[in-house]
Amino acid sequence: MPDLKRKLAKFKSEKVELKAGLAEALRQAMEESKKRDAENAELKTRIEILGQEC
């Protein structure tokens, strides 16, 4: 029985680690998405300005 409890504790620990890793990956993905959105907005503005100059 102690072996089973140790294995269960290990699985729970791994689950917590996986959740933390997933949360970090999601945070990074959201940060990258915000950067791309800002860059896209800037590029759209530049395109509009260039279109007005022609």
Rank of each mutant, 00 (worst) to 15 (best):
M1R: 09
M1E: 11
M1G: 13
P2G: 00
P2V: 14
P2A: 10
L4T: 05
L4A: 04
L4Y: 00
L4P: 00
L4S: 07
K5R: 11
K5H: 07
K5T: 08
K5I: 03
R6T: 15
R6V: 15
R6N: 05
K7C: 05
K7N: 08
K7P: 00
K7Q: 13
K7E: 12
K7F: 05
L8P: 00
L8V: 15
L8R: 05
L8K: 07
A9F: 10
A9S: 13
A9G: 06
A9Q: 11
K10T: 02
K10L: 07
K10H: 09
K10W: 09
F11G: 01
F11H: 09
F11S: 07
F11K: 07
K12F: 01
K12A: 08
K12P: 00
K12W: 02
S13I: 09
S13N: 13
E14Q: 11
E14A: 09
E14W: 02
K15Q: 15
K15E: 12
K15I: 06
K15L: 14
V16F: 10
V16G: 02
V16M: 05
V16R: 14
E17H: 05
L18I: 12
L18H: 09
K19V: 04
A20F: 05
G21V: 00
G21C: 04
G21I: 00
L22Y: 04
L22W: 01
L22S: 13
A23W: 02
A23K: 14
E24K: 09
E24N: 10
E24R: 08
A25R: 14
A25K: 14
A25C: 11
A25Y: 01
L26Q: 15
L26E: 15
R27I: 13
R27V: 13
Q28H: 15
Q28W: 05
A29G: 02
A29L: 03
A29E: 04
M30D: 14
M30F: 12
M30L: 12
M30Q: 13
M30Y: 03
M30T: 15
M30A: 11
E31C: 01
E31Q: 12
E31Y: 01
E31N: 10
E31T: 14
E32I: 14
E32T: 14
E32M: 06
E32F: 03
S33W: 03
S33V: 06
K34N: 06
K34M: 07
K35F: 07
R36T: 12
D37E: 12
D37S: 11
A38Q: 13
A38N: 08
N40Q: 12
N40S: 03
A41S: 13
A41D: 07
E42H: 08
E42M: 11
E42R: 13
E42Y: 10
L43A: 09
L43H: 08
L43M: 09
L43D: 03
K44D: 08
K44W: 04
T45E: 07
T45G: 02
T45P: 00
T45Q: 07
R46K: 14
I47F: 11
E48V: 04
E48C: 01
E48D: 06
E48G: 01
I49L: 14
L50F: 08
L50M: 06
L50H: 13
G51W: 01
G51C: 10
G51A: 11
G51Y: 04
Q52W: 12
Q52H: 13
Q52S: 15
E53V: 00
E53A: 10
E53P: 01
E53C: 02
C54A: 07
C54P: 00
C54I: 15
C54F: 00
